[in-house]
């Protein structure tokens, strides 16, 4: 009963505008991700990663998770990609095309990735064929809601995470210091 009713209510073959937008942005995101892992120009990989992460931010917006979208833009596009670009430059990555960007186990990697993709997509589609997200009503991820939830119910993990970030910061500084004191 429910399957037919839901199918009639939502329609398998008549996607809504949000679904079409999600699909198009998803295709762009997936294409950018594919270029990121296959291009032979290392700096271009980082720049295509920007496209993929920005596309994911748009997907969060379409899923009404507004705060997460802006955090994604700020943290990922703003700092993580910049860190990666700095890393590429500090390890003297070649600017042009580098023929040895891929290692020798590329066919095996392709086989594993295809098998994982096939299995995951099959299971996911089979499991969630008849479930729909109800995007109507008030936005569930607005900044107000996220802030209230975060500081009302998730304070302790939040604080623990700030300690973890501090530890990571100190660790990165310790790792990247030149050991001048030891060797004179």
């Amino acid at each position: 009963m429910s399957l037919a009713a839901q199918a009639a209510g939502h329609g398998f073959l008549s996607p809504t505008g949000v679904e079409i937008a999600f699909l198009l942005v998803g295709l762009v995101t997936l294409g950018a991700a594919l270029v990121t892992v296959t291009t032979r120009q290392l700096v271009h990989a980082a720049l295509w990663l920007v496209v993929a992460l920005g596309g994911l931010a748009v997907e969060y917006l379409l899923l009404t998770a507004e705060f997460i979208a802006w955090v994604q833009v700020l943290i990922y596009v703003g700092s993580v990609v910049v860190l990666l670009l700095f890393g590429l430059m500090l390890t003297k990555a070649p600017i042009g095309r580098s023929p040895d960007a891929d290692s020798g186990n590329r066919p095996v990697a392709l086989a594993v990735a295809l098998a994982a993709a096939a299995a995951l997509v099959w299971v996911v589609v089979d499991a969630f064929r008849t479930t729909w997200i109800d995007l109507d009503g008030p936005a569930q991820g607005s900044t107000r809601v996220s802030g209230e939830i975060l500081f009302r119910h998730w304070v302790l993990p939040f604080e623990a995470l700030s300690v973890l970030l501090l530890a990571a910061l100190v660790g990165a500084i310790v790792l990247s210091r030149k050991k001048n004191g030891e060797e004179g």
Binding site: V18, F22, V108, L120, W132
Partner: peptide, 27 residues
């Protein structure tokens, strides 16, 4: 929105990342 859209996109992105981790040489 159909739940399969984000779930399938996430699965495909995960597989793309898996391929990159296994196939890339530069750390």
């Amino acid at each position: 929105m159909h739940l399969a859209y984000p779930a399938v996109l996430a699965a495909l992105l995960f597989s793309v990342g898996l391929y990159g981790v296994l196939a890339r040489r530069n750390a």
